[in-house]
Simulated assay, not measured.
Amino acid sequence: MMTRSRSTISLDATCAKAVTLPNAMGKPPCVLKPIGVEHIPAFRDGEARGPLLVQILIYDGGEKSTVAPRDRHWAIAWMVGEMTTASWFVDGYPIAAHRILELKNELAPDGSGPLPYLTNWGPRTTSIGVEDQASIHVDVVVLSYSQRQVMEEIARNEPVRPPNGNWNCQNWVASILRRCEEAGILTGDQRRHALSQTGVNWRNLC
């Protein structure tokens, strides 16, 4: 099982204790990779090969949120398609899916609670739930299919750091955007403008 990577876990005051990651991506042993919807042909084969808008998703945001901006979960995502058959409709609306790059906070197999580190399982395609729809969407850049493949490869290889009181999923997202700038698929102005809309001092993330 897994939960969203809340910064309250990553920025734990008890993180003075040594935390050893099982590997650079924090993939815990005996925990299965989350299942996406890549196996469904409409999503596996239907992602637009043309340009798509890439966004930062910010969870637990909004004016009524009680979660501090630095404690909100971030992800990078873009819409890839909708299920149009009647069996995939909910309340009269088609289920949509997006390609998402994010960290997860896995639960320990022994039932002792969340693991003291985050996990990078790599890019996946997932249906959009209520939590995703309610997240704040910050536009980053429109990327071609080949550029999105570059971003996915960067995210797939972006390591996870042990909790140290400063690093969390927001730093991970900011690092991916910086590496994308270095790879030439977005500009520094585009990166800085997107991060400036997140509600945190983004200069501390890079």
Rank of each mutant, 00 (worst) to 15 (best):
P28W: 09
P29H: 06
L32K: 07
I35W: 00
G36T: 00
H39I: 03
R44G: 15
A48L: 05
R49W: 01
P51M: 06
L52H: 02
V54K: 03
Q55W: 05
G61M: 10
G62E: 08
E63S: 11
E63Y: 07
E63A: 10
K64H: 12
S65K: 10
T66V: 13
A68K: 15
H73E: 13
A75I: 04
A75L: 02
I76L: 13
T85Y: 02
A86P: 04
A86Y: 13
F89W: 13
V90S: 11
V90M: 03
G92C: 05
P94Q: 04
I95H: 00
R99G: 07
I100M: 03
I100K: 05
E102T: 09
E102K: 02
N105V: 13
D110N: 15
D110T: 12
G111M: 09
S112T: 15
G113N: 14
P116Y: 09
P116T: 11
L118F: 14
N120E: 07
P123T: 04
R124W: 04
R124P: 05
R124H: 00
T126F: 00
S135Y: 03
S135A: 15
I136N: 11
D139I: 02
L143N: 04
S144M: 11
S146A: 14
Q149R: 09
M151T: 08
E152T: 03
E153M: 12
I154S: 10
N157A: 14
E158C: 14
V160Q: 10
R161Y: 10
